[in-house]
Amino acid sequence: MAALVYFRKIAEDADAVVYLFGEDASEMTRQLVMDKGNHRSRSGDGNVDYAFLKASRKISSMRDRASEWPERGMSAS
């Protein structure tokens, strides 16, 4: 079974980056917050499911490669 997750940065400050994410690029309704200090993520709705983990891992991977928080992206598997 294929899995897709899309994400888009909506806010950033000195401590955190906030993303919207979801399985449909036109309906990203969930929030993911990345802590800049320790690169840990938390779910805005408290639901730590496969889509959340997939988005979090992809954002972290892109951040590690580019040394900056990505504006948007997607992960497919």
Rank of each mutant, 00 (worst) to 15 (best):
M1S: 13
A2P: 10
A2F: 02
A3E: 15
A3C: 07
A3G: 12
A3P: 00
L4I: 03
V5M: 05
Y6R: 00
F7E: 03
R8A: 05
K9C: 02
A11G: 08
E12N: 01
D13K: 00
D13M: 03
D13G: 02
D15H: 01
A16D: 00
V17E: 02
V18W: 02
V18G: 01
V18Q: 10
L20G: 04
L20P: 00
L20K: 13
F21Y: 13
G22M: 01
G22F: 04
E23H: 05
E23G: 05
D24F: 04
D24W: 05
A25I: 00
A25F: 04
S26I: 05
S26F: 07
E27I: 00
E27P: 00
M28N: 02
M28V: 01
T29L: 08
T29C: 03
T29Y: 03
R30P: 02
R30Y: 06
Q31H: 15
V33R: 12
M34L: 13
M34G: 04
D35Q: 13
K36G: 07
K36M: 09
G37D: 12
G37Y: 00
N38D: 15
N38M: 10
N38Y: 06
H39Q: 11
H39C: 05
R40N: 09
R40T: 12
R40G: 08
S41I: 07
S43W: 03
S43H: 06
G44E: 08
D45C: 10
D45F: 11
G46F: 06
G46W: 01
G46T: 10
N47V: 14
V48F: 05
V48M: 01
V48I: 13
D49N: 14
D49F: 05
D49W: 07
D49V: 06
Y50S: 09
Y50M: 06
Y50W: 02
A51F: 15
A51M: 09
F52Y: 13
L53Y: 09
L53V: 10
L53F: 07
K54C: 12
A55C: 14
R57H: 13
R57C: 02
K58Q: 15
K58N: 14
I59A: 08
I59Y: 06
S60Y: 08
S61L: 14
S61M: 11
S61W: 14
M62K: 14
M62H: 09
M62Y: 11
R63H: 14
D64S: 13
D64I: 12
A66P: 02
S67T: 12
S67G: 00
S67D: 14
E68Q: 12
E68S: 09
W69F: 15
W69H: 06
W69C: 03
P70S: 10
P70N: 08
E71D: 09
E71A: 12
E71L: 15
R72S: 15
R72H: 08
R72L: 04
G73Y: 11
G73M: 02
M74N: 11
S75E: 14
A76K: 14
S77I: 13
S77F: 15
